[in-house]
């Protein structure tokens, strides 16, 4: 700003700035370091601390001996996990839910964004956005409560509505076959609108001149969406796809934990809930930490591989 006001003495200002810089380097630097200090301490303790603590996966953790003092056991807990009868079930459930979610939950926000983008600016567009974003703010617990209430075989509204068209009551919550669908569709209900925001932003950046030219050339709306709008959001799609595929093994399990019951366990038991139950309920810390480490290791590898493929196939990648 000062530069704009007085363009003439600019070189002097710069020289003076540099001089002061070297003069006050030490004196100035500590203040910026002081600003990052709280974040540094926080991450060092609560992000890097547990990374050290993950050592217990290779040890037989005994609280009184501490992390370092507990005896080493090598890969014992990993072997125990791989050879357990539930290993493949957990893997299948984790991947099953996530792939299901990706297949439905990934394209829907794109379609919704393309559709909203076609609406003329006005109250109806605003209303559509406000309504579809809203479920994002409903807490997991309320969502879980809603599902349990709505899907109840005798009192739930869904089964009453199904009864109207002659379908016998389904016990959605206790039937393992329904668990994944209930989980995925409720996620879609909650997240589709919110997920469309990022695509709408990319669509807002499309040059209107492209559409005008296409209209003059006689392109239909569908053709314009396909040839103009869609290419504009491809980079966003790729980034989100990388993140989604990379996170296949790090699912949010707070909702699963709420919806899980002994009857649907064969379908709802995923690696993350297994870690919770083994570690925090049964107190087998080392074993649970090993399973958790296995999970995050797969996750990191997956992310690197997917990012690599994305960089080869398209120009977009995370790093």
């Amino acid at each position: 700003m000062a530069k704009e006001l007085s363009p003439a003495p600019l070189p002097i200002t710069n020289r003076r700035l540099q001089k002061k810089h070297s003069f006050k380097t030490l004196k100035e630097k500590w203040q910026l370091y002081a600003l990052i200090l709280p974040a540094f301490l926080f991450l060092a303790i609560f992000a890097y601390g547990p990374m050290y603590g993950v050592l217990i996966a290779f040890k037989n953790y005994i609280p009184s001996l501490g992390i370092w003092g507990s005896p080493w056991v090598g890969f014992k807990y990993f072997q125990q996990f791989f050879s357990s009868y539930y290993f493949w079930d957990l893997l299948r459930n984790t991947l099953g839910i996530q792939v299901y979610e990706l297949a439905i939950g990934f394209p829907l926000p794109i379609i919704l964004a393309l559709a909203i983008n076609e609406l003329k600016t006005g109250w109806w567009k605003k209303f559509t956005q406000t309504v579809t974003y809203a479920p994002n703010f409903i807490s997991v617990v309320v969502m879980g409560g809603m599902l349990i209430a709505f899907l109840d075989p005798s009192t739930g509204i869904i089964n009453h509505l199904l009864g109207v068209i002659g379908i016998k009551p389904v016990s959605f919550m206790s039937d393992p076959r329904w668990f994944k669908t209930v989980y995925v569709l409720s996620d879609v209900w909650q997240q589709t609108g919110w997920g469309s925001i990022i695509y709408l932003a990319a669509l807002a950046g499309v040059d209107p001149a492209l559409h005008e030219a296409a209209i003059v050339d006689g392109a239909s709306r569908l053709q314009r969406i396909w040839h103009i709008d869609l290419p504009a959001i491809v980079p966003t799609m790729v980034i989100l796809l990388i993140l989604n595929v990379g996170n296949l093994f790090s699912m949010g399990y707070e909702k699963i934990l709420l919806l899980q019951n002994p009857l649907n366990l064969s379908s709802s038991n995923v690696i993350a809930t297994f870690v919770y139950n083994q570690g925090l309920i049964n107190g087998e810390y080392s074993y649970a930490a090993a399973v958790g480490l296995f999970n995050s290791a797969i996750n990191a590898i997956l992310l690197i591989v997917v990012n690599h493929i994305a960089r080869k196939v398209s120009d977009t990648s995370l790093w």
Binding site: F40, L43, A47, G49, M51, V54, A288
Partner: peptide
């Protein structure tokens, strides 16, 4: 280096149990 220090924690984490014990 601080940005890298932060970004690493987005991809690697100790997980539930070590965090709980901490």
């Amino acid at each position: 280096w601080f940005t890298n220090f932060m970004l690493i924690t987005m991809f690697l984490s100790g997980g539930l149990i070590p965090t709980y014990l901490l």
